[in-house]
Amino acid sequence: MLDFWFLPPIPDAVREFLGFSPPVTLINIALVVYTFSALALTLARMMAGSNSYRGWAHLGYLGAFYGFYYYAGELKSNFWPVFAAGLTILCLENYRVWTYCTDAIREEREKLG
């Protein structure tokens, strides 16, 4: 289904320099912990009414997870967990920003009207 033929193989020199990849089990556990804490922090920011957007940072973290799986040679079987985690976190983050903006626009309209 997903072959990632377009991704080049990692050269031996790079592997020699970086060493062994972490076990896939550990990457999976890290992904679950990251998803849990990212969702909890987004909900906390939603309650606090914060206006900061953390979507770009999350894209970086998710990219790092893809990088780890790719280096461990397990990207094919772990593409969808990272995708689902990213979709959930970014949906919640964007929903938070959307509700914040909607409230701000309504407040502004009330002041103007």
Partner: peptide, 19 residues
């Protein structure tokens, strides 16, 4: 937010558990 959080997290956990 509750729906997104619970569903998304359960889906991620299911993928990882399946793995």
């Amino acid at each position: 937010p509750v729906t997104i959080t619970i569903t998304g997290f359960v889906i991620v956990c299911c993928f990882v558990l399946y793995s």
